[in-house]
Amino acid sequence: MPTFYTKEHEYIRIEGEEGVVGVTDYAQSQLGDVVFVELPLIGKSLTKGAESAVVESVKAASGVNAPVSGEVVDINRALEETPAMVNQDAAGAGWFFRLKLTDPAELETLMNEAAYQDYVKTFG
């Protein structure tokens, strides 16, 4: 199951025709304690780069953009009660939503695991 990354520190883990979207562990470490996550509605169509969710810490709110285009097929409702999961397990239980991809070719514009790890290193 390959995972792809954006420069804004979102990830999308491909599972068949769908992808699981969240923010990376590096992103959660920069955000600090996550206190609230605003998720998109199921069924919403997103275009690549469109703001699809908002993740809030005490003193900041950051938009989470759709890494690729697609339709929202599921959201992680557990985050509404336990936003701290984003801090504890960003790549796993802290996922945001599932997308049904409309244009898988868009994945080629994203970074793979190795490229992202190099990219994060540039932030020191």
Binding site: F36, A60, A61
Partner: peptide, 12 residues
């Protein structure tokens, strides 16, 4: 819940 407010959310 200050992320609702102008000093953090600005135009939103």
């Amino acid at each position: 819940l200050s992320t609702r407010e102008q000093h953090i959310r600005r135009d939103k």
